[in-house]
Structures are given as structure tokens and as C-alpha cells.
């Protein structure tokens, strides 16, 4: 029994010695706890609490706040209970995305992320891949919206499909509200032409962001060329000029686009003029030789009905 008591007492003493030795050698290195909101809005003011678990006051702790590509360094000093607070003012954490807070104390480094969400849409750029498209539904243009908040952060419009719409007014008065396909920072849509030639007005509006753009709907290529001749009969005395006039329209009867080239063939000669409001005029001296001349005008694949010019040395009837 005595041996048993001695063994138990010895074990207890040994245990106490080991525990006290361990307590003396392994002074726990204090760790840091960073307390911050999980999510803030871009540009909002917020506070970071730094808690030194050892509870020591008066300790300097350098902190780095990485927000997008900006970095801010600050050293805080712990107060009572080992707690320090860093008040980040409004307008400082402006870049959206996941930001990082890094605090260091001795060998300990603690990192914490905080999500910064973009604010409401405040700026928008509307781009188009073409400034003009053929009317009548024959072509289309891609419209792209770059939408940002007040700090220039791209917006994620996913989930806001019903709000992010393009209001389109076509030349014939038709209106369409076109939904956009959203990516982060960008929304896009195809717009098919509708109706005849004229201006297509496109507007985008979301929160405080507005943008507008115009696309020109152009007529098609010449389908019908009408040639008129003035005068149809002319004396070969060299005093008069011959005036050739064409009116060119597309398949829907609208004048072709300004500047369309029209060719004129008179016998073996050729001349060219460009259109304004669908009309091209060419004034030339008439042939010197008397006779009946065949005139044709053409633009692209379309050609006019031939008209005949009479050149005479007598009187025109």
C-alpha cells in the first residue's frame, strides 16, 4: 500500500512538473482577429476591429488594405482589451470585387477578405458595331452597353434582365424594348432593322445611368432606274446641251442612298454621276452627227429602259 501511495504521489508530482515546464516554455504567441463586415457598398464608410487575443494594450499593428489595385497602409495601436479600431472613411474603398485586409503582428499574419459591391448604375456608354444598316430587316447591328457605378466599377446586370432594356424607336414610329444579354461590366444585344430608311434612336436607362445612340437605316441598292432625257430631240448646231436625269429607287420604292454612282451610256461613250435624294443629273454636249442615239442609265445591277435621242440638222417636231 505504501508503494502504491508513493507511486501515485510521484506520478502527480511528475505531472505537475511537466505541466509547469510546458507552461513556462510555450508562451502562446498572440493571434489577431480581424472583424469587418462581409460586404460593403463601393465608397461606403466602414470600420475594422483588430483584436489582439493576448489582450495587450499599446501594441502597434500594421495593416494593409488592398482594394482592387489600390493599397492603403495604416498602423493601429491596441487599446484596452487588445482591441483597436480603424475607421475607413467614405470614398476610400471604391473598387468593387473582393478586397483584402492583411494584419501583421510579430510573426503572425492574418488575412481577411471583404466583398465590395458596385453601387447603382450611374454611367453608361452605348456602342454599336455599325453606324448604318440596311433597312427592311435586311441587316442588323450589335449594340453594347458599358454600365458602371459612380466609381467606375462595372455592373453585374445578371438578374436584372427586366430592368436593363434598350428602348428602340424605328423610323416608322415602331417602338421596341429589347432585353440585353448581360456579362459583368457589359450588356449586349442584336438589333434587326425595321421599316424604311431613317434614323433608329436607341436609349438605355438604368438607375441613374442613361445613354443614347442613333443608327442610320439605309435604303437598299438600286432596283429601278428611270432615265429621262431633255430635250429628246436636239439640233446639231452645237448650241444646246443634253441633260440626262435618272431617278433610282430600291426594291421598296425609296430613293437610293446619296452618292450612289449612276452610269450613262450614249452610243459608245459613257458618263457617270452620283445621286442626291435618288436623283443623278448629267449634262453633256450632244453628238455632232445626226442620227438616232440609244441612251441607257444603270446603277449596280439595275438598268433603265433605253431612251432615244434624235440629233437632227432640221427642226425638231
Amino acid at each position: 500500500m505504501t508503494w502504491m501511495r508513493r507511486f501515485i504521489l510521484l506520478s502527480i508530482v511528475l505531472l505537475c512538473v511537466v505541466l509547469s515546464a510546458r507552461a513556462q516554455t510555450s508562451t502562446p504567441s498572440p493571434s489577431i482577429v480581424l472583424d469587418a463586415p462581409d460586404t460593403i457598398g463601393a465608397g461606403e464608410a466602414w470600420s475594422l476591429y483588430v483584436n489582439l487575443t493576448s489582450g495587450e494594450a499599446g501594441m502597434s499593428i500594421p495593416i494593409v488594405l488592398l482594394n482592387g489595385l489600390s493599397q492603403t497602409m495604416q498602423t493601429v495601436i491596441t487599446g484596452t482589451g487588445g482591441i483597436a479600431r480603424w475607421d475607413i472613411p467614405a470614398g476610400m474603398t471604391t473598387q468593387s470585387g473582393r478586397s483584402m485586409i492583411i494584419a501583421r503582428y510579430g510573426d503572425v499574419e492574418v488575412r481577411r477578405t471583404i466583398r465590395v459591391r458596385a453601387g447603382q448604375a450611374a454611367q453608361a456608354d452605348l456602342l454599336t458595331t455599325t453606324n448604318s444598316m440596311t433597312a427592311y430587316g435586311d441587316s442588323r447591328a450589335m449594340l453594347i452597353g458599358l454600365i458602371r457605378d459612380a466609381y467606375g466599377n462595372p455592373m453585374d446586370l445578371r438578374g436584372r434582365d427586366n430592368e436593363a432594356l434598350l428602348d428602340i424607336r424605328f423610323p416608322n414610329g415602331d417602338k421596341r424594348a429589347l432585353p440585353l444579354t448581360s456579362e459583368i461590366g457589359l450588356a449586349w444585344a442584336w438589333v434587326d432593322s425595321l421599316g424604311g430608311p431613317g434614323r433608329v434612336r436607341v436609349q438605355f436607362s438604368l438607375d441613374q445611368a442613361t445613354a443614347a445612340i442613333e443608327i442610320q437605316q439605309m435604303p437598299g441598292t438600286a432596283r429601278t432606274v428611270t432615265l429621262t432625257l431633255s430635250p429628246p430631240c436636239i439640233l446639231n448646231d452645237g448650241r444646246d446641251l443634253l441633260r440626262l436625269t435618272t431617278d433610282s429607287v430600291d426594291e421598296h420604292g425609296n430613293s437610293v442612298v446619296d452618292g450612289t454612282l449612276v452610269g450613262f451610256t450614249l452610243g459608245t461613250g459613257e458618263g457617270y454621276a452620283s445621286t442626291t435624294d435618288g436623283r443623278a443629273v448629267l449634262t453633256i454636249p450632244p453628238p455632232a452627227m445626226i442620227g438616232l442615239y440609244r441612251l441607257v442609265a444603270w446603277s449596280g445591277d439595275a438598268a433603265s429602259v433605253p431612251v432615244w435621242l434624235q440629233v437632227t440638222d432640221e427642226t425638231c417636231s
Partner: peptide, 29 residues
């Protein structure tokens, strides 16, 4: 300090030269 990150970027071709116009960066621990 060394970090890794994900980024989403919008680039536009201005005068024949691509430029970064918008970005969002998610820093990772």
C-alpha cells in the same frame, strides 16, 4: 505580400490599340 486574384476585364479597341477600360478584381487569400 504575395497574392493571387481573379479579374474580369472589359477591353476596347481604340485607334487600333486594345486598352483595358473596366476591371473588377477579386483578391484571394
Amino acid at each position: 505580400f504575395t497574392l493571387s486574384a481573379n479579374a474580369t476585364l472589359v477591353l476596347t479597341l481604340d485607334n487600333g490599340f486594345w486598352r483595358i477600360r473596366e476591371y473588377t478584381i477579386d483578391l484571394m487569400r
